[in-house]
Every structure is written in C-alpha cells, then in structure tokens.
Design a protein around this nucleic acid. Structure first.
Length: 345
DNA sequence: AACGCGGGGAC
DNA sequence: GTCCCAGCGTT
C-alpha cells in the first residue's frame, strides 16, 4: 500500500486550507499560547461537545484548575462539580486520573510523546494526535468526525466510517494533504472547516476554500457523504425515584461508576412497601440519551419529620442534602431541572 | 469488533 | 417532538 509520506500528492490543497485558516480560523482561548495542558483539556471537553456548548465549562475549568498539579490534587467530587452538565462523565473521572498519572510518571509535564500520551486515561489516538500536532507541532493527523466528513466529501470516498479501520484509512488521506511543518495549524483548520462549513446538514460549500477541488461538490453529492452503515439502536428504560424531604433537606446518594451518570447524585430508587401510600404526586420527565430513551418517574412523598425518615432503613446509605447547599453536588440534568422547577431554587 | 456513554442545537 | 452530532474504555 502506498504510504502518505511517499505520496503527499494533495499538499497543495493543504496549503489552500492554511491560507484560509490564517484569515478565517476561529479565535479560541486555548489557541493563543498552545500550552499542552490547555490543549489537552480543551480536546477532552470538546471532543464530543460543540464549542458554543462547552466554552463556559472550559473557562471555568481552567480557571479553577490552571495546571496539572491543581487538577491532580483536587477531589474527584470537585472535578465533577466543574463538569456538571457537560455529559459523558467518565471523561471527567479519566481526566482527573490522568492528571495524577502525569504527576507520578512525568513530573507534572505533559509528555511530548505519542505513545506516552496514549497511556493516559481518556487519551486515545485522536487526542494524542491533536496534542502532538497542536502543542508540539509534530505531523500527526487528528482524525475525528469532522475529518471523516471533510475528506470523504473531498475525495467522494464511500469508505464506511463506522468501521474501526476507518481511522487508519482517513489518517492516510489526511497525511497526503498535510503540510508537514504546520501539522497543528492544518489540524485546527480542518476542525474549523468541519464545524463551520462542511457541516452534516446545510453545508456552506461556497465559503469553503477547497470547494472547487471537492469531488463530491463537483457532482452534487456532498450530502451523501460520509457513509455510515451502522445505525444507532435506541433502547427504552424507566427509572423510579422517590423524593423525600423535610422542608429543608432531601435525600440523595452518589451513583456508582458502572453505567451512566457516573458519580453523579440521585434520589432513592425504592422505598419500603408500607410507605408507598405517602406518595401524593408523580413528576414524570422523559430524557433522551444517544443510545437510550429514558423515562424518569419522580414520586413525591409527603413531607415527614426527620425522625420518621431516619427510621426508614432504606435511608442508611443516603445523604441528607440541604436545599440551599445542592449546588455543591452534581446532579444529572433532569434531576437538576426537577429541583429547580419544582422548588424554584 | 461491538457496545455504552450526554447534552444541546437545528428543524 | 425528532433527528443529528463522536472518541474512548470496556468487554
């Protein structure tokens, strides 16, 4: 098979992209000084989150944890507090763990080595390549969904992106375009084109610096790419919660790390049979996950004295949380909304 | 190789 | 409401 370094036959396309990027690239805070730490954090936060959606979280996060040292020495609960609302909570747990790996194994310095980066929790081939290219200007292609879309359209390539081999395949294509001495700029430029021009729907092709070279554009088939053969199967699931409070506090418990909403807090999921008559209302909310359609029933129980509540054996593993202290805990979005709407907090 | 994991924007 | 977006860890 031909290798990219031997056949950089589309590098003139990469040059067009760089020229466009210098005038039209997004100005983002972590692009100012190219600090490996800020690049790493931004890649983890924005890997599956749009810039607009996660920017406030990013700014808060790096203000509170400005260095690897700050992040490593924080408690996991505090890290979760700054991650609250971003979703995919294992990212935060892994990020925290990786910060401690960097303290222990690399004296607090982000390693400038692809293999070493891959050993960090939460760092896969994409983030390792992004850090290597953007922070250290090494020629690694940052292959993500943007790149699949831009390249499959540019080359009119029907390679199935749901196959795991697609990563290597499109890495090869990217390397044929990349001006080697400006890998970081090239990768950032491709992300910007994918996010703002070569979008999944309503692509703004005429603004694209390479649309006159784009093979899908030339035959009017842009929207047919990329090809993804595997489709998502959505499952249904129901959760019952029992909301107990004494007017000042309510009961909650931290979730485990087995399934979704890792390490976030939730309400009791069951109560002794004899208390079911205390239910006076049920608040139902549907919540859409990518792979799951969740129905949440929050059963409100009549206000009881603290003594009564403490007697209930089910309460043993739960914490009593004051309504006015709830911001110190990380709740899933629907439970946060419930608390805010139902009790106007 | 297959599966689970969030939340928000566009329409 | 419905549809869409995506890398990483685990198994």
């Amino acid at each position: 098979m031909e290798t990219s370094k031997q056949y950089p036959d589309f590098v003139h396309i990469g040059m067009k992209i760089l020229l466009w990027f210098e005038k039209n690239g997004r100005k983002l805070p972590f692009r100012e000084e190219k600090s490996p730490y800020f690049i790493w954090i931004s890649e983890v936060i924005f890997q599956q989150t749009r810039i607009q959606q996660g920017m406030e979280h990013y700014l808060r996060f790096v203000e509170r944890f400005p260095t690897v040292q700050h992040l490593a020495s924080a408690t996991e609960d505090e890290v979760m507090l700054y991650w609250k609302g971003l979703g995919y909570y294992s990212r935060a747990i892994n990020l925290h763990h990786a910060a401690q790996q960097i303290m222990n194994d690399y004296s607090g310095e982000i390693p400038s080595d692809y293999r070493a980066l891959l050993r960090l929790k939460g760092v896969g081939k994409y983030i390792a390549s992004a850090v290597m290219s953007i922070a250290f200007n090494q020629p690694y292609p940052a292959v993500d969904g943007n790149l699949y879309r831009v390249l499959s359209r540019f080359f009119c390539d029907d390679y199935d992106i749901s196959q795991s081999k697609a990563f290597d395949y499109f890495s090869e294509l990217a390397m044929r375009m990349m001006p080697m001495e400006r890998a970081g700029d090239f990768n950032e430029a491709m992300m910007d084109i994918g996010a703002e021009i070569c979008t999944p729907k309503n692509p703004r092709c005429t603004l694209c610096p390479i649309h006159t070279d784009c093979m899908a554009y030339s035959v009017g088939k842009v929207l047919e790419f990329p090809i993804k053969k595997k489709k998502i199967v959505k499952k249904k699931e129901t959760i019952d919660y029992f909301f107990l409070h004494d007017g000042q506090s309510f009961w909650a418990k931290q979730r485990g790390k087995e399934t979704f909403w890792k390490s976030l807090y939730e309400f009791p999921s069951s109560i002794p049979e004899k208390y079911s008559e205390m239910i006076y209302d049920t608040y139902q909310v549907r919540h859409q996950f990518t792979h799951k359609d969740l129905t949440i029933n929050i059963h409100l129980l009549e206000r009881k004295s603290e003594e009564t509540l403490e007697e209930m054996s089910i309460m043993e593993h739960f914490e009593k949380i004051d309504f006015d202290k709830m911001d110190n805990f990380s709740f899933p979005k629907p439970l946060q909304d419930f608390l805010r709407n139902k009790f106007s907090l």
